[in-house]
């Protein structure tokens, strides 16, 4: 790598010294604590017999499930309350 020469031992050593005494530049995501609580994701995943739950007719949904032309839904969750990508005045990535 041609740019390697600009990175000197002194530069890296200085950075390391400051790293070991200074704080992190990474911002912990505000939702991380909530995500931390969700330890069970994946652990309990298994195939489920939906018939037993009586959610719907066992065989009736199968062809509809797979119908490629039946998709007419529009998103209706929290996306409705979020700003959908308006141009931002803030600089990209600080």
């Amino acid at each position: 790598m041609s740019t390697k020469s600009v990175i000197t031992t002194a530069f890296v050593a200085g950075a390391l010294a400051s790293a070991l005494s200074a704080g992190s530049a990474f911002v912990t995501a505000t939702g991380a604590a909530a995500a931390d609580q969700e330890k069970c994701y994946g652990v309990a995943l298994k195939g489920q017999n939906d018939c037993a739950a009586g959610a719907h007719s066992c065989q009736g949904q199968s062809t509809m499930d797979f119908d490629p032309d039946s998709f007419k839904l529009v998103p209706a969750g929290t996306c409705l309350s979020m700003d959908m990508g308006k141009p931002s005045l803030k600089p990209m990535n600080g």
Binding site: T30, G31, A34, A35, S81, M82, K86, N93
Partner: peptide, 23 residues
């Protein structure tokens, strides 16, 4: 990351500036 975080939390999801890059 912000969109992920607020939607993994309990509570309301308000307006988010979605065009700010987050790695």
């Amino acid at each position: 990351v912000t969109i992920f975080s607020v939607n993994r939390r309990e509570g309301e999801v308000g307006a988010i500036e979605t065009d700010i890059a987050e790695d």
